[in-house]
Computed example of a mutant assay.
Amino acid sequence: MPTPKTSSSRKPLLYGTGVVLAAALLGFISYRATAPADRSGSSSTAVADVTADPDAGVFPELAKLARRDAGDGLAQGRADAPVVLIEYADFKCGYCGKFARDTEPALIKKYVANGTLRIEWRNFPIFGAESEAAARAAWAAGQQGRFWQFHAAAYAEGVKEKGFGKDRLKALAKEAGVRDLGRFVRDADGAAASAAVSKDQEEGYGIGASSTPSFLINGRPLAGAQPMEVFEQVIQAAADKAANTKDAKGDGGSKGSGDSGGTDK
């Protein structure tokens, strides 16, 4: 899958000088994650070099991008979960679909269900007009509490090959259980949808994401449809760090910071 061209006006490093290295790292991993097929003709996601060190590659500025809005229809999991995974993705991205089908359900079952993990979606449409339309439609489905059902329908095997024209998006919304399809169409075409998608997109460009899917896990960049064990390792390290920080604060210590999550809303 080719890495899309981005506007020269979309520059990274919007969140302080400490993000320079993070942006470079995420851009590099993103390129590797969507690199052309090797000489054997196979195409696979590059596996990230992940250490068990909970502080390695963690950037507090990026951790602060977690919104933790309990009313966010494009998120799931407790707002005060100790670990937040932010996903920047495109509905026309094959690797995003692979993550959605193969890995995300297992993460939800293992970590979201027990309160460890919160997943926050960011629309990051980078493959043209249909990507933009699908992103707005997903946001519109979220206004009726059906974002994740729309997400599942749009990422089902073989769906993206059928395209995301207006009729297809309406059909996907119906499949997702969106009740008021008239409102769905109006919302998807409205200014609020465009503004919400643009906000997510600029945030993605701001951290240096250059392809999809790209992730932040408590401020630690990770890109590509990585194997389950990679996500497990990063999430567990973040959860352990958050627990240690909470214990230190409870003992009157001064170690750690609130950027790890777990703050009551």
Results as ranks from 00 to 15, higher is better:
11 K>G: 02
20 V>T: 09
28 F>E: 12
36 P>D: 04
47 V>M: 07
52 A>F: 09
56 A>M: 07
64 K>D: 12
65 L>Q: 07
67 R>L: 11
72 D>H: 09
74 L>M: 14
78 R>G: 12
79 A>D: 11
84 V>S: 15
88 Y>G: 08
93 C>D: 08
93 C>I: 03
96 C>N: 07
97 G>F: 00
102 D>W: 03
106 A>E: 13
109 K>A: 15
121 W>S: 01
122 R>Y: 07
124 F>M: 08
129 A>D: 15
141 A>D: 08
143 Q>P: 07
146 R>Y: 00
147 F>H: 12
149 Q>V: 04
149 Q>N: 12
160 K>V: 10
161 E>M: 02
162 K>L: 03
164 F>Q: 00
166 K>F: 05
168 R>E: 11
176 A>N: 07
176 A>H: 05
184 F>T: 08
187 D>C: 13
190 G>F: 01
197 V>W: 06
197 V>C: 05
205 Y>M: 02
206 G>C: 06
206 G>H: 03
209 A>L: 10
212 T>G: 03
213 P>W: 05
219 G>S: 01
222 L>H: 09
224 G>H: 06
225 A>N: 06
232 E>S: 03
233 Q>H: 09
233 Q>N: 07
234 V>R: 07
235 I>H: 06
237 A>L: 09
256 G>S: 14
257 S>H: 12
262 G>P: 02
262 G>E: 05
